[in-house]
Design a protein around this nucleic acid. Structure first.
Lengths: 189, 189
DNA sequence: CGATTTTTTGAATCATATCAACGTACGTGG
DNA sequence: CCACGTACGTTGATATGATTCAAAAAATCG
């Protein structure tokens, strides 16, 4: 829970009393590589915070290929917010790609928390604003960059992260085939 | 201001007193087609709500082509949130593509508003959560659909809207060329 | 080690871009 | 309210970045 509390303190100030109040709303769990937190067709009932490890969000397309839409590493929140918001079935999977420690809060408990501690509205607003801002930029990159540029940009933007995941997952996230990624890498060294 | 107040009331309850308090924080303005609210290199100082009309957000790529990343129509908020958050220069333009009525609030005033009326944190959180949710789905569509499917999906998802904008803008938003859009349309009658 | 998972190769193919030219529509000022 | 100019849309030929498929090579794991 250390990571989450520290993260919250980056955005709003809370005293020790409030911090311990918070704890009762969240559940911490260890999950193993490949474990699924959400499956296609299920409702996304929880909002997840990654204390440690790495998750991916993906869907399966018509051809049966897994398409990764996002990763979540330490200090990121992840959920299918459309499904979470409306409690409707999700088209996505969320899966651990490393053993991980996850803090979760379900939809109802989150509402209760926000009722009891309205200042947490500010925390979540700021987290979502930052996430939305990142997505706006991501859309720009998707339109602006060739596949090769996307790869280079990712590598330099998240140094070290590329080594944590198989290349075919990176290719999937960047929107091209593993074969083509292989070709890009060959070209450069 | 009617539209904004109604929009806020969809998310939180406010009494007449609070509603009139709100008014003093926002500024309403009429802008004409082609007018720019934000230019590349400027800081995005305002958060904009569209009461009437239509805006586009775009950037200019290396080749000098305008790439549209989003539209904003009635009842949508728009800003470059990275730039707005950190008050750093934006890579984007925001422009009216129809005469429009816009409600705006600058970064500082928004903070003052949130201090005076903390329940507005909830409003903005919910707005951002919905916007982020829409972006998550948009990323999925970008990966899932062929260009032709993107077009069909957009047309059926926003019936009537395609008629409000030139086709080359729709092509730009969907990530392909006007020539190719023309070809897609030919195929279908 | 052997078994599975991941990465690389190369050839054929496809979706989409590019460019240049022509056709159409539309709004603005005379 | 017409005519002109500019903005928008279409066409077809050619080019290209990226995919597909099948198979081999390499890395990782129990």
């Amino acid at each position: 829970m250390k990571g989450l509390i520290a993260h919250i303190k980056n955005y709003i100030s809370i005293d020790d009393n409030e911090a311990s109040q918070l704890l009762s709303y969240f559940k911490i769990s260890s999950i193993v590589k490949k474990e699924l937190l959400l499956k296609e067709g299920e409702v996304c009932r929880h909002n997840y915070f990654v204390e440690k490890g790495c998750l991916r969000m993906y869907f399966v397309n018509d051809k049966g290929t897994e398409q990764i839409t996002q990763f979540a590493i330490e200090n990121w929140w992840i959920a299918d917010y459309m499904s979470f918001d409306r409690q409707t079935p999700s088209p996505f999977y969320i899966q651990a790609i490393e053993n991980a420690e996850i803090i979760s809060i379900d939809h109802l408990r989150q509402e209760e928390l926000l009722k009891e501690m309205p200042k947490m509205e500010r925390y979540f607003r700021l987290v979502l604003q930052r996430a939305y801002a990142a997505h706006q930029l991501r859309i720009k990159f998707l339109y602006d960059f060739s596949k090769e540029e996307s790869y280079k940009h990712f590598i330099s933007g998240f140094p070290g992260f590329a080594q944590r995941i198989p290349q075919y997952m990176l290719a999937s996230y960047l929107g091209f085939t593993p074969e083509y990624l292989s070709e890009i890498r060959k070209k450069k060294g």
